[in-house]
Design a binder for these strands. Structure first.
Lengths: 122, 122
DNA sequence: TTTCTTTATCGTATAATTACGATGAGCGAT
DNA sequence: ATCGCTCATCGTAATTATACGATAAAGAAA
């Protein structure tokens, strides 16, 4: 309930609340099947080298690296360099936080719908 | 559990499972703060004219109409013409279905993480 | 040091998204 | 039929996303 209604004026994120922008940002990170799959892979493998992920996806290494970067941007994953390789893993805290945001959003919508849609049947 | 692992060969949606593509598609629909806000507005108002939504958003009518179209595309909302106006409302069934998809996805990830991340702390 | 491996980044091409003014289609009212 | 209102669509511009080959950086192995 922290920032309901507070407007932020960040250059591009303009006239929406922080909550709205954060939710949209999480959704954006999940808006490509490759990134959906990467998160699933990382959850299953716990820790995974970039190269392994590349092998599991129908995309070039450079492209996968870009997708990983996008997931890192919103903190859903983290990577640390281990010698020449990079080990990626899920950022559990952020995943949980993102999930909570989504849950709050959908629960609020469902509750509102139940409250208002008493007679709305055509 | 319907289509795990089944590949679809739709021209663009290419080499990902239907589940992955559907999830990404839902996320894409939610990947803009304006659309996040529109759903919230519709949940609160139950039914809403396009013009009302336009007034509540910092965007031009044409732009809002585009966002509404995107939400319609993934069935999260529906609109019906009433005279010169168009009444929009949430498609409750689809919202619930989308929410379930997201829940399944996140729950699976969290479960896998718990299973595999026994020693992974640094 | 040189070579190999791994991965991030650069450059670039193409496509999709976002935004808005202008136009048009449809309906109600005059 | 004409006018006014509402909204979708068109045309267009600017930005962002997606994809990949090529290159660079950096540790490992020789």
């Amino acid at each position: 309930m922290s920032d309901k209604g507070i407007m932020v004026a960040k250059s591009k994120t303009e006239k929406f609340t922080q909550e709205e922008s954060r939710l949209a940002d999480i959704a954006k990170a999940l808006s490509h099947p490759a990134r959906i799959k990467i998160l699933k892979i990382l959850a299953e493998m716990n820790v995974c080298m970039c190269g392994e992920i590349v092998e599991l996806l129908p995309l070039a290494q450079a492209t996968v690296s870009q997708h990983l970067k996008e997931l890192k941007r919103v903190r859903l994953i983290q990577g640390e360099i281990e010698g020449p390789k990079t080990c990626y893993c899920i950022n559990t805290d952020s995943i949980i936080e993102a999930y909570k945001q989504l849950q709050n959003y959908f629960e609020a919508i469902n509750k509102e719908c139940k409250r208002t849609c008493k007679t709305n049947k055509k």
